[in-house]
Design a protein around this nucleic acid. Structure first.
Lengths: 232, 232
DNA sequence: TGCATTTTATTTGTCGACAAAGTTTTGTCA
DNA sequence: TGACAAAACTTTGTCGACAAATAAAATGCA
């Protein structure tokens, strides 16, 4: 039997954010599978509110490409575009490099601290073999680096790319029994050190290597031979 | 006396797009000045519809950063952040380069054609000294190049940056009596040729030079000495 | 049975209404 | 007069209702 959610009385104006955040998480953690339809009325009942705030949350999600709305028809969770993954890898790599470079130049002590905290959480998640926490803290780690780079244009694109990556990584680790690699922890540490040393070129190289590593892992997963798992 | 707009019967679902497109244009052409407040009820009367579709259009505009919404308070046209223009220049330059490079690699004949058409309109606008048309077609020209590059992540960021640039350029040419420079026409032609030749490195250099040129012009405008125009 | 067409049902887009939050005006007292 | 409080007004966020659009079911016909 499913748990019954209860949403206590909330302040006027908080409903949209509540729905938005929850739907967003459910989409990115693949709780809502790509392509599945979203029912406004059902959500309205689930959250105990009218359709108006639900719709606003959906419009915002659509603006970020996490949801697709067909006119006069249902809105559905955005599909993962496996055919054009190379555009994703390309953007991911460039954004890793650019944001890490900028962080080396513009970071301030407090920001480096925030980055370290996310890294600590990331290391703990890897240690505990907690895939969801690892994916989330990895995203936060790189988002914090982008913040330190202080370019809102890059940050917003990077967040979008990282979110898309969150879905891919979830897919990846689901299929490999959630066994998490430790080399990322060390790579993160090296990146932190390079940012602190304000070594732009080293940051660039490390960011590129880090991106390549991730891209390679995902590609390995996508191109692996699935034939032996077919029943005969 | 102001012209009275009339909006004929429209199909169900078209209202949001109508409002969105019009508000967007008015914001980017500085018809709605940055910082000015937006009245939902007034818009609803103006377009002859209820507040619901107006609100949805505003939510979408907020998602693109063209409008800022204060909870329980008015929503206003986003301000231009003059203090952090360098982040804009940085992103603009990088996106010029990246999208032009990708266009050189991935463009197809039809797309090159579209790019040429925008360039023709751009040249005509410069010839006619029509600043608004020139700004719009310049944006379309570079957007078409991004399209040819086929990376939706880059395209979406680039469009956002170009839109922000539309406001800045409008400001620029308003203040200089809308006298339009012709060198951009030639630079555009060179870029087209480089894309057609699929010369990635040349595209990169030309895009960077083009970006630098624009950045320099805007900076010149922003830092010019305004003292002599003060009344004594 | 298989296909086209009408009926019914579901779902979306829009509306008018209303209450909560915020803003301005009015009123009171020092 | 000037500062503070109360009242009146404006604007926003949410709701329930309804009609247009689509999807599903039922019906008719060969």
């Amino acid at each position: 039997m499913a748990e019954t959610e209860t949403f206590p009385d909330r302040k006027r104006g908080s409903g949209v954010k509540l729905v938005y955040d929850l739907l967003r998480d459910e989409i990115l953690d693949l709780v809502l599978p790509p392509g599945s339809t979203i029912d406004e009325v059902q959500l309205a009942e689930r959250f105990g509110m009218s359709r108006t705030p639900i719709r606003e949350a959906l419009v915002r999600l659509a603006g970020e490409g996490l949801v697709e709305t067909l006119p006069n028809r249902s809105t559905m969770v955005a599909n993962i575009d496996f055919l054009n993954l190379h555009t994703f890898f390309d953007a991911l790599t460039l954004m890793y490099r650019v944001t890490t470079r900028l962080a080396a130049t513009y970071h301030q002590p407090a920001e480096l601290n925030a980055i370290r905290q996310h890294q600590a959480r990331f290391a703990a998640a890897v240690e505990a073999q907690d895939a969801l926490a690892m994916i989330a803290s990895n995203r936060d780690f790189h988002a914090a680096i982008a913040e330190a780079g202080r370019n809102p244009y890059y940050t917003s694109l990077f967040l979008r790319v990282l979110d898309e990556g969150r879905r891919l990584l979830r897919l990846y680790y689901q299929s490999f029994d959630d066994r998490l690699p430790r080399e990322y922890v060390d790579e993160h540490e090296a990146i932190i050190a390079a940012i602190e040393a304000r070594d732009v070129e080293l940051c660039d190289r490390l960011a590129k290597a880090h991106a390549d590593q991730i891209v390679r892992q995902i590609q390995k997963f996508l191109t692996r031979d699935r034939r032996q798992s077919l029943p005969l």
